[in-house]
Design a protein around this nucleic acid. Sequence first.
DNA 1: TTGAAAGCGCTAACAG
DNA 2: CTGTTAGCGCTTTCAA
Lengths: 344, 344
Amino acid sequence: MSTLKEVAALAGVSMATASAAINNGPVGKASRERVLAAAKQLNYVPSKAGRMLMTGKSNVIEMVIMTIDGHPDIVRRTALFYYLMLGVSEVAEANGFGVRYTTRSHDAPDVTEYFDHVVGDRSADGIIIVPQFARDYSFLSALHRARYPHVMLRPSRNAEDSNYVDLGDYEGGQMVGQELVGVGASSIALINGPQSHLCAIERERGLSDALLDLGGTIVAKSYSDYTISGGYDAMARIFESGKLPEAVFCTNDYMAAGAMNFLREKGVSVPRDIAVIGYDDSDLATVVYPALTTLDNRFFEIGQALAEELISVIRGETTTIARSLIPIFRERASHSYGKTGWAD
Amino acid sequence: MSTLKEVAALAGVSMATASAAINNGPVGKASRERVLAAAKQLNYVPSKAGRMLMTGKSNVIEMVIMTIDGHPDIVRRTALFYYLMLGVSEVAEANGFGVRYTTRSHDAPDVTEYFDHVVGDRSADGIIIVPQFARDYSFLSALHRARYPHVMLRPSRNAEDSNYVDLGDYEGGQMVGQELVGVGASSIALINGPQSHLCAIERERGLSDALLDLGGTIVAKSYSDYTISGGYDAMARIFESGKLPEAVFCTNDYMAAGAMNFLREKGVSVPRDIAVIGYDDSDLATVVYPALTTLDNRFFEIGQALAEELISVIRGETTTIARSLIPIFRERASHSYGKTGWAD
DNA sequence: TTGAAAGCGCTAACAG
DNA sequence: CTGTTAGCGCTTTCAA
């Protein structure tokens, strides 16, 4: 590995000149050419560490997904966040930033320390935080105190002034409620994620507000774990309780797929006997039969927005981030029968 | 942000002593305590850049997935690599390494430059390369030349001496062939990925070698793009060609799901009329009906192995990596092919 | 436009 | 065990 010193020596200029030449600074044409030639000849690549030390910039973005212990793990058991990461990555790299991904549990003894280190070790210029649970987010104050560039996926209740890009879970819940009522369903079952999960909380809140307005009723409610088997079991519980609703809203596609598996086994026809709506627009949705109506929460775009906003804060072009992307309804066969009237 | 200098000053010791105290070096008990107290008081976190400059180590691992332009994109359209990333991440973090993920196209003008930079800028201690296509891998020579720590997913034909963890695509293809013949199917259709895709090439080679040994025949072959709709179209082509095989091997679950969608539309019963086998053991497999028999290529474990081996090279404990993890057959309860004999 | 010198924050070598 | 000194590779004053 060659250093700038060697390049400068070979080009017969000072290090300062060599540096300027390489960074498109003010250098004479002749010098620039000689430096660039020397750099090429020596296979010179600037050391990140040296540059970081001087500039204080790493050109790296950290992205952390918050988890909790002893709970179904959306991170490890579903690929939900994959497209979010892809969106972040695309925008970051287009702007010359590398992306480091990690996961941290609220229950890990070193959560606070982790955030202190992110802020303190200066190996990343900013951080994207993906919260999942209604938990303590006091570690955010460390970010504020240091004015460290950060964005969260969705607003934090515990830190009013935090920067965020919202994924519209509340609005999504409303959309589902409106759709179901609009289509003639009035008795609705909810198969939701864990009660501490922010998506679950918001989607339920949206649904129930919409139903309050429009006149539908939640006749059964079951909290599950976002998995296929969890959805199956939840549907079983509702089925065995005796009162079969006209529609079931599963707050993710995995549970919807499980619920549909159960209904098929029991000979309940979807959508003739019961309508099913999922959430997330995952690959599963087009593969179950009948294809699942679902909401696309636009994770790729949200990832892009997260990265765009964070970079803009890092560059000092923005100070406050408050952006929102509402889900898109993806209508498919699993609930469409209702459009023309319900089975008797 | 406080520096070691300030900590040392506050503790009343030299920087060297402060450094030693913080890195568990040989320091007197009293000094250590004073330093640690000062560090805590000043909220001191060591700067990564400073440390990197001295030690030459970044404690970061880079992971790059190779793509090509103008081809179906497994990275963006499926979540296949998510669990691989998770495996890498788990082991890396357990060993104190951060992980940076990226993607690079063989057709990008800056591929070579990218690898030169990875090697040259010393911002990562090693790299995990996920090749996908039978293409030029001459950029590997840069890694060799610099003795830069690296591992590839599967062996590279173009660089015999490269380090690798193999995912057993060839063996997987063989396993499918053995299973199908063992179960009584002799006419088999293959719905494969792109002909330039390494997984596709190897899985087909394995299948075809096994059938040669055991006496089955590939009666139809269709190259597709690993997507659901691609599988649907491929199945349509085979169906319309007139000769319906006893079994279809789809080299990923997405295409298998598409093929099953097509068969259902045509009233062909799976597994009664035709058997279907997928590959990858994705979430889709348990959600289609009937549940899809598939091969689990153990991406999580492979990710772990990749990280373990790379770290061991980084630490100088190993020089050559050649490891192999063979897929596991996942036969489903209500499976997509008949163990008990084929329909007449 | 160019060069000399200083220093970013840290660790390593060595003398005490 | 501790302090001094040197220097990792780079950018950034500031003079020339």
